[in-house]
């Protein structure tokens, strides 16, 4: 398979991972997933609200789409909560994949990297395949790899902010430091050019939700992201030119008419 992505032994053609929350309707969510060609979607576990049937319809729709499901531990603020949520998710979703979120700050939703490493260690020991939502800190990344993570998911910007790549330098350094580890920019992506930029840096995939769900037309935006990722990936594979400080004419100077005048 040409340019396939492999995560924990699963081969994927798409490099877009799509969140399923906040869409205007289940039908629009389904269309967005289809047009984006995403093969992994994130899901959660929650109490059913009184009289609500959204969760049931949602699960039926996801099953019919035949995509890989990546349950999350969103909303967990301690490793203990996240571990319990992961155990519950494994039982209901029949997958050992878990998007591990341990939130450390209420305003920024910044990961608590200490709890994250603790949670990843325990979950890996239990046989989970952990997709850690982390920062762009290389020291934390090394610790996550040391406890058994085979994928790293650094943030681009705070969850739901749509700010893009807040620290391009750190993300570039992370890519250079871990050339063979699948790296996924998770969170903060707002428009397809942000995703393309991450792919141009050599990132392996993008996980996003709000940018599509809260777009004026989520289905169109999902297609835009699919194209943006593809463009960025092709640019990375092709190898970009080196930027220069001075102008260099692209049209040959030799043979210019009136050059003797």
């Amino acid at each position: 398979m040409a340019d396939a992505l492999t995560l924990y032994g699963t081969t994927l053609q798409s490099r877009l991972m799509l969140g399923t929350a906040q869409y205007p309707s289940p039908a629009i969510l389904a269309e967005a997933i289809k047009i984006s060609k995403a093969e992994i979607v994130t899901v959660s576990l929650r109490r059913e609200t009184t009289g609500g049937t959204g969760g049931r319809e949602f699960w039926t729709m996801i099953k019919e789409l035949g995509v890989h499901v990546l349950p999350n531990t969103a909303g967990c603020h301690t490793a203990k909560e996240a571990i319990l949520t992961a155990e519950l998710a494994r039982d209901v979703f029949d997958t050992d994949w878990i998007k591990l979120e341990v939130i450390g700050h209420a305003d920024t939703l910044q990961p608590d990297v200490f709890g994250l490493v603790d949670g990843a260690r325990e979950l890996t020991a239990q046989g989970f395949k952990v997709f850690p939502y982390t920062t762009d800190d290389i020291v934390v990344a090394e610790k996550l790899l040391a406890v058994g993570c085979e994928v790293l998911m650094p943030w681009g910007a705070p969850i739901g902010s749509g700010k893009g790549l807040n620290n391009r330098f750190a993300l570039k350094a992370m890519r250079a430091h871990f050339p063979r580890v699948p790296l996924v920019v998770d969170a903060g992506i707002g428009v397809p050019s942000h995703a393309a930029e991450a792919m141009e840096l050599g990132y392996d995939a993008i996980l996003l939700n709000t940018a599509v769900a809260k777009a004026g037309d989520p289905v169109q935006m999902a297609k835009g992201f699919a194209l943006g990722l593809e463009a960025g990936r092709l640019a990375y594979l092709a190898g970009a030119m080196e930027p220069r400080d001075m102008a260099v004419p692209s049209t040959p100077v030799l043979g210019l008419a009136f050059s003797e005048i």
Binding site: T20, A21, S44, L45, R47, G55, F58, L88, V92
Partner: peptide, 27 residues
């Protein structure tokens, strides 16, 4: 956690705090 396979053999008692969770949308 009470796994699916253990629900029939897991007794519940007065005052237990039970969680029953279903798949939901998530990011």
């Amino acid at each position: 956690v009470v796994a699916k396979r253990n629900r029939e053999t897991t007794d519940i008692q007065e005052g237990d705090r039970i969680e029953i969770l279903i798949p939901m949308q998530g990011g």
